[in-house]
Computed example of a mutant assay.
Amino acid sequence: MTVKDYCLEIQKLLTEVGELNWAKCFENFISELEVSNDNVTYRKIISIYGGMGAFDDVVLYKDGVLCEQENDTLYQLKKELYTQIVADWK
């Protein structure tokens, strides 16, 4: 999968569980990747991985219930997205 494909999958998952702030963030990445697949967008994506309240800290809940399967999927997608960016870095 491409970086854009990973962003699309993550955005879809986040939207399904109602995590709309992060979903919007990924919508923006997708739009940027449609225009240009460059290091600027990659840097923006990588930057959400660190610090307090970062994307790595996201735990998905829906209606107050922990979404175990969705969290497992999100964890895997986050890891694969990061790996793909590193592999594509120019």
Rank of each mutant, 00 (worst) to 15 (best):
M52E: 11
V3P: 04
Y49K: 08
D38R: 05
L13A: 06
M52P: 07
Y49A: 06
N71C: 06
N37T: 00
K12D: 14
D72S: 07
Q11K: 15
L8P: 00
C7E: 03
I45E: 06
L13T: 04
V59Y: 11
G51C: 08
I45H: 08
E27Q: 12
W89T: 01
Y6P: 01
C67H: 02
L77F: 09
N28A: 06
L60W: 01
Q76G: 01
Y61N: 11
W89G: 02
L33S: 05
L77W: 11
Q84R: 11
T83C: 00
L33Y: 03
L81P: 01
Y42C: 06
L66C: 04
I48Y: 13
I10E: 08
I85K: 08
Y75W: 13
N39S: 08
M1A: 14
E9R: 15
I46Y: 03
I46N: 02
K24I: 05
Q11F: 05
V65M: 12
E80H: 10
K12N: 13
V65N: 12
Q84D: 08
Q76S: 10
G51P: 05
T41F: 01
L14P: 03
T41E: 02
K90N: 12
E32Q: 13
I48H: 15
K4P: 02
V59E: 15
N28D: 12
W22K: 03
C25T: 13
N71T: 06
T73E: 12
G53R: 14
Q84V: 06
L66R: 08
I85W: 09
Q11L: 04
E68A: 02
K24C: 01
R43M: 13
Q69A: 09
G18M: 11
Y61D: 06
E19D: 10
N21H: 12
Q76Y: 07
L20Y: 14
K12C: 08
V65Y: 11
D72W: 03
N71M: 04
I10G: 05
S47V: 01
L8Y: 07
D56I: 02
I85S: 00
E19V: 06
V35T: 11
S47D: 15
E19W: 03
L13C: 02
L60I: 05
W89M: 06
T15M: 04
Y49L: 04
E70Q: 15
K78C: 06
V59F: 12
V3L: 01
V58D: 07
L8R: 12
T73C: 03
I30K: 11
E34R: 07
T2W: 07
F55N: 03
C7D: 05
S47A: 15
Y42D: 04
N71E: 04
K62H: 14
K44W: 12
F29V: 00
I10M: 10
S31Y: 10
Y75L: 09
L74D: 05
L33I: 00
I30D: 09
L81E: 04
L8V: 07
A54G: 15
K79C: 03
D72M: 09
Q84T: 15
V86H: 08
